[in-house]
Nucleic acid binder design. Structure first.
Lengths: 137, 137
DNA sequence: CCGAATCCTTCAAGATACTG
DNA sequence: CAGTATCTTGAAGGATTCGG
């Protein structure tokens, strides 16, 4: 501690500061695909193809890119079995499991409150349409 | 209930399905600026300029766009005081306050675990540099 | 002056095809 | 099966201009 190694924050990280590294991981975590990938891995290790099938709509490119980022940041491990055909397994690390729980809460909230959100949109859109052609004003 | 109004899910929402509307809000919530905006509003209503100063690095355009989306989805209210100069206040709704707590947990995790993530990156990057020019292999 | 709309540039997401 | 490469599209970011 107190050495001159890389920029590290010891208790003073603040994601509201643009230069604080914590904003970088926040940007990694606050991402649709990250949330879904980590949520899928919460049930245990999965192969690339299994992940791709579970995350409906994701492309190979985005899945590869997301997994690489998560691996680099220490949230996921990547294990290659040099068989033919190749088998690559992804698993959450201890660090990853912690934050996965927090992300699961947001996903569940989305699923439980989607109707309230859709209702709010209807109200907003109806109000916006009104303003274009006022009924009485 | 049980009517033929718009597509609504009654207990069966699943963000892993591309067509499920819950993925749409997940995409709104799983966003760096959304997390920071909602977190800032957790302390009470704020004006546009106050938000802009707190969220270091955000542009007026992105802040406006983020706030519009959150307003439309019922997470934030927008109140205009037609004074000169204009005063526009934003506040979290009840719906928004619920999910703000969940997002705060992720922001705090980012701030508390940033060093572990930075360390993981160093290891990953060093390993990647090795593979380009193997020392012994 | 504050909030927002309108360009324009840059970069990442998405889609497709190909390789080990 | 897992991953890379290429191309197209769209959103993020930045600067400027507009309106109350």
């Amino acid at each position: 501690m107190g050495t001159t190694d890389n920029l590290r924050f010891h208790g003073g990280a603040d994601a509201y500061l643009a230069a604080c590294p914590s904003r970088q991981i926040l940007d990694v975590l606050a991402n649709k695909w990250t949330m879904l990938v980590m949520g899928a891995l919460a049930g245990g290790p999965l192969r690339f193809g299994e992940l791709r099938r579970r995350l409906e709509g994701i492309t190979q490119k985005m899945l590869t890119q997301t997994l690489r980022t998560l691996e680099r940041d220490g949230l996921v491990t990547r294990t290659v079995y040099p068989t033919i055909p190749p088998k690559v397994q992804y698993a959450a690390t201890g660090l990853g499991e912690n934050v996965t729980e927090l992300m699961r809460a947001i996903r569940v909230w989305s699923e439980e409150n989607i109707n309230a959100v859709l209702d709010a949109r209807d109200v907003y859109d109806a109000r916006a349409a009104e303003e274009v052609q006022p009924v009485t004003a």
